[in-house]
């Protein structure tokens, strides 16, 4: 391999038989999994955060709330205490053996992300001053209206950078999707290597694509933060 020119290696790795399409299609799957998993993660995260905050704040805890809180605690412990790859494989080979792999990946990454997002959102809710709740309630809004219209928007604003960071982490974490046969970006590079026996250029390109996306997302984050900070300007 050492005697081949760089140009011919690159030609073989990416141009010949349109092999770059492995990366393009792989990137498509990576983005698909990441976006929908984050969506699921945020939904699960909000629900869990609300249950846990509610549990800690209410003086009279109903049986239902106690059970819900217990389930959430268990979920957080298991998800955060086991590796993502293992969760993915359990989901793929044991629990949901007959589904479309990409769906299984989305659900697995979503469930995983939800556990981390939940804690982020919970800290966001708790960071909002108690006076905000008091002001809302004193105007006659009920607990749900106050949470939805006054507390959550401020909580989201407080944790927007952390959630966006979760997005970036998730994007990179989906690189283990290949373990269950999904052709994501990383797997795409790996397939090229297995065809051409040339590892370095495909991996380098894969790494570069991740890096560029992360840099772009970070730029988007700054824009979002700027918008959110509008109400903080003096």
């Amino acid at each position: 391999m050492g005697d081949r020119s760089l140009a011919s290696r690159l030609y073989d790795d990416f141009i010949n038989q349109n092999r770059y399409m492995y990366l393009v299609r792989g990137l498509g799957n990576t983005v698909l999994i990441t976006i929908f998993a984050l969506l699921i993660g945020v939904i699960i995260g909000v629900i869990i955060a609300l249950i846990r905050v509610n549990y800690h704040q209410s003086r009279k805890k109903s049986i239902l709330l106690r059970i819900a809180n217990l389930v959430c605690g268990l979920y957080l412990t298991v998800i955060r205490g086991t590796p993502m790859v293992v969760q993915l494989m359990i989901m793929y080979f044991v629990i949901w053996a007959s589904g479309a792999p990409i769906m299984i990946a989305i659900v697995s990454f979503g469930l995983n992300s939800g556990a981390y997002v939940a804690e982020v959102i919970r800290s966001g809710i708790q960071s909002v001053d108690r006076g905000q709740t008091e002001a809302g309630r004193s105007l006659g809004l009920n607990a749900h209206q106050t949470m939805l219209n006054i507390i959550l928007p401020q909580a989201f604003k407080n944790v927007a950078p952390a959630i966006f960071n979760e997005f970036i982490v998730l994007l990179k974490e989906t690189s283990v999707a290949g373990y269950v046969g999904i052709q994501d970006l990383t797997k795409g590079g790996d397939i090229i290597r297995s065809i051409t026996y040339d590892a370095f250029p495909p991996l380098l390109v894969v790494a570069a694509v991740y890096l560029v996306i992360v840099i772009l997302l970070t730029q988007v984050l700054h824009v979002i933060e700027g918008r959110l900070a509008k109400s903080d300007l003096r």
Partner: peptide, 26 residues
């Protein structure tokens, strides 16, 4: 509570809403 107004030491305006929205929300 809708019939009882309350004013707080630390104002507790809603920082994510405009002044007008603060007033019209409830």
């Amino acid at each position: 509570r809708a019939g009882m107004g309350m004013v707080f030491q630390h104002f507790n305006l809603f920082p994510h809403l405009t002044v007008k929205k603060n007033i019209t929300l409830a």
